[in-house]
Design a binder for these strands. Sequence first.
DNA 1: AGATACAGTGAACACTGTTCACGAAAGCAA
DNA 2: TTGCTTTCGTGAACAGTGTTCACTGTATCT
Lengths: 242, 242
Amino acid sequence: MTARAEARDAFRRRLIDAAYTRLATEGAAGLRMRQLARDLNVTPGALYRYVSGRDELLTILVIDAYESLAETVRRAEAGVPRTELERRWLTVWVTVREWALAHRNEYQLIYGTPVPGYEAPAETIAPASGVTLLLAQISSDLWTARGNGAADPAPVSLAEDLSRIAAWVVAHGMSVDAPGAMVLATVEAWTTLLGAVGLELGGHFRGSIHNNAAYIELLARRSYAALRATILNDRVREGADV
Amino acid sequence: MTARAEARDAFRRRLIDAAYTRLATEGAAGLRMRQLARDLNVTPGALYRYVSGRDELLTILVIDAYESLAETVRRAEAGVPRTELERRWLTVWVTVREWALAHRNEYQLIYGTPVPGYEAPAETIAPASGVTLLLAQISSDLWTARGNGAADPAPVSLAEDLSRIAAWVVAHGMSVDAPGAMVLATVEAWTTLLGAVGLELGGHFRGSIHNNAAYIELLARRSYAALRATILNDRVREGADV
DNA sequence: AGATACAGTGAACACTGTTCACGAAAGCAA
DNA sequence: TTGCTTTCGTGAACAGTGTTCACTGTATCT
């Protein structure tokens, strides 16, 4: 590797780091090319030797954010014994929230309003699936450990979507034997989780929920209970007439 | 009223209308003072006679969006017979989603990432409560019509938050006798609803849910069932041992 | 009718992202 | 080592942004 290529990579790294810092401290709007040039003691034009423009920088940061979130959650979840399914589930919820609080701007970058004039390109799709896959894994583990229970029927109106999700899960190397109702409950959990975090970050709980940690934990427990309840066995044992 | 004051009001109205149009067609980023000036055949400086700046315009539009959403949902919900609680509940969910789809940018303006450098001022808080109040009303009606059921106990960790919500509901002229567990289920529903709409608008269901109409309806039904289930009476009748 | 308040102008200021011709330096081949 | 080529960073420029301000002309009020 030539000295030039090395210097090039090094500077590109510095640029991305500077961009990351600006994003973290000032949000997506603080990501200004001219400001980054000042941060790096260079004229604005020089940046375009390393990056095609502001959009590419944003794409890099989007991917970075997805990966950072997924990695953080994966690491936390890996620390919980495999058999303690509910604790694993809970850990995912809590860790997502904590990451979001610690990385507000990165979170908004990926799950907030799309940045004006910026359309997330295809390469951002793959890294976006990290956390959902983790939930799917736990859900799948629950199904495997179910004993001899059957599952709720899945609604026909979503049959197509559910088989799409199943295919996608298979494509990520997981077994798909989890039934539609469980898959759906997992998607539902994902929806509620991101809803709760988004509302908290947006300050929409100002007049209601303040103890957001307790709230998210409650939501996590409920969603896990709902997930379990999709396995008929449990309910039947309890004598419900569903 | 003098002719001048009249013209002043008329122009201010025209300005807000133009801003609304730009927001709807191009998003918050398309809301450019200079562009609005061109739209109105006037120099940019003239706008500052009617509005203190871009932020005030945004605030007006934020309030407008909250009110438009609340009004739309209120009207739809009012069309359903009072006693059909589940249909009323469902109508709220579906209408919120439909409004969001028809007014993507307005929705993002209120529930998406806060616009860079813009902090929503106090006067936006009141109009934000429209839809939540509607859900609270249905939930309260359900409680009133419960027969002689008791309610689940509410978690102590959220007791403070729940009483804050109760106080806020009272301040809006509703009776508060609905128990904590129901209030919580209502907040939970709100969380999931906004989560689902936000994810759909953000394109985060691209690899999974496509039939979003069916999905939101399913979520609505489930959340209503959960709301009902907070009233012990029902569950006891079904023989569950919770 | 005269004083006053106000609307709109046009120029300016300080920014932004992006492009481009140019000179300097580095890498490579003979 | 010499010469050619590729790359780098600069500085200036372009087109755009929000906002301010001295200055007119016109409408309102006394």
